[in-house]
Simulated scan of single mutants.
Amino acid sequence: MSVVSEKIEPVPIVFEDDGLVPNNPMPFLVYKGAVALDRGHPEATIEGLFGANGWGAMWRNGVYDFLHYHTSVHEVLGIARGHARVRFGGDRGRELEISAGDVAILPAGTGHQCLSASPDFSVVGAYPPGPPMDLQRPTLESHAKALKTIPLVAIPATDPVMGKDGPLVRLWRR
């Protein structure tokens, strides 16, 4: 039995550069209810899915409660337990409710910040092969540097949810 619904398509959202958070012209992707989780080991279910699709360097935690973004790497967030309200795209972005089984894929530069979360909120994050993750806060200086580094981040060969033929491969183009 597959842990992923075969017919699921992500919702693509493009966030504009707001002068402090660069975001990315490639769309942020959110899969709602994409992963059928093992009740006893939901984090392991997500780790297995991401790992099978070539996204490693995984971690388990939540989403930071301060606005930040990454300039050296794309990131995927798989919601293993609970639910949260997260603002994606910076202060002028969009607030989304994410919950267990959802997956969000953030192209480099996409701002994100947890606004509220259930006590059991648990996230598995991962990155495609490449440089290590960096963490940037929204300042004019970090924004200027980000505009130079983000275009150099390689497009992943696989979608962390659907693999080599997944929507990310079709939707992320330069």
Results as ranks from 00 to 15, higher is better:
M1V: 13
S2V: 11
I8G: 10
P10M: 07
P10S: 11
P12D: 11
F15A: 08
D18L: 09
M26R: 15
P27K: 10
L29G: 07
V30T: 12
Y31R: 00
Y31S: 01
A34T: 04
V35C: 02
L37N: 12
G40L: 10
H41P: 03
E43C: 13
A44N: 09
N53H: 10
G54K: 00
W55Q: 03
M58W: 03
G62Y: 05
V63G: 02
D65Q: 13
L67W: 03
Y69S: 06
T71H: 00
T71A: 11
T71E: 09
V73Y: 08
H74L: 07
V76R: 01
L77Q: 00
G78V: 05
G78S: 08
R81C: 10
R81M: 04
R87C: 08
D91Q: 11
S99L: 12
G101I: 01
L106S: 04
P107L: 02
P107V: 02
A108F: 02
T110Q: 07
L115Q: 09
L115D: 01
S116C: 12
S116K: 12
S118L: 03
F121E: 09
F121M: 06
S122K: 11
S122R: 12
P128D: 06
G130P: 03
P131K: 10
D134Y: 07
Q136L: 11
L140W: 14
L140V: 15
E141V: 15
H143T: 10
H143Q: 12
A144H: 14
A146G: 08
L147K: 15
A154S: 14
T158G: 05
D159S: 13
D165N: 15
G166Q: 09
G166R: 08
L168Q: 09
L168Y: 07
V169G: 05
R174K: 14
